[in-house]
Design a protein around this nucleic acid. Structure first.
Lengths: 112, 112
DNA sequence: ATTAAATGAAACCTTTTGGTTTCACAAATG
DNA sequence: CATTTGTGAAACCAAAAGGTTTCATTTAAT
């Protein structure tokens, strides 16, 4: 079992579960009603999220409510941030280019 | 083949390849020298990175240089950002709590 | 006391993943 | 020209991932 955050969020179903649980704590049955796979499949996904610390479970009678614990996502965030400059630089120069185009167009109009 | 960015960065080897290639364009052989798996295995990882748009290949004679194209990471960044408040809120209140503790300790000292 | 509901886990199956060795081919070099 | 080098891709393999059905257990409800 690798079970790191990067691998946990790689699966779209697990991301969907996270987004549901981030709004409010939910039990396995309620979560699984929103998917077209079996409860057991959803349970396994949730187990992975638990094991890597992205959700936490509070027992209440016979039900267990899963609560999002998103601090671990900061690990992914940190990794991403080191590369942010790479794509933002590109966007900045595109923006500058578009700005330049706009200015030139204005000048053209002015000279008509 | 699912081949989305989330899945691409789930593998630690692929993240390592990305970090190498982000510094400078490198060919498959050079990249694979830095790992203890076969060139073919590294080639497959790089193919996945190419297919999901995280790297780009420029041919130069018989060599092909892989260049990082990290814009696609913004997809992951966007996803992460929507949850940032969740873990930052927690950190903020911890910070506030520690600050309060410190203040109280100072008051205690003053009253000695 | 029975029955129903919510859960965890096992047994099993298929597809995907990450790896290997091997081969073919194009480009550089002696 | 013959050989080495860099590459892409195929054939194959073991393990992991994602799914299923089934069963046992605990708690709630009739």
């Amino acid at each position: 079992m690798r079970r790191d955050v990067f691998q946990a969020i790689a699966d779209p179903t697990r991301r969907a579960i996270l987004s549901m649980v981030a709004e409010q704590p939910l039990n396995v049955n309620t979560v699984s009603e929103n998917f077209d796979v079996s409860r057991a499949a959803i349970y396994k996904h949730m187990k992975i999220l638990i094991e890597c610390g992205l959700i936490d479970v509070k027992q209440q009678g016979r039900e267990r409510y899963a609560e999002a614990k998103l601090q671990k996502l900061s690990e992914v965030n940190d990794w991403i941030q080191q590369y942010k400059q790479f794509w933002e630089a590109k966007l900045d120069s595109l923006e500058a280019y578009l700005e330049k185009l706009k200015t030139e167009r204005n000048n053209d109009n002015r000279n008509k």
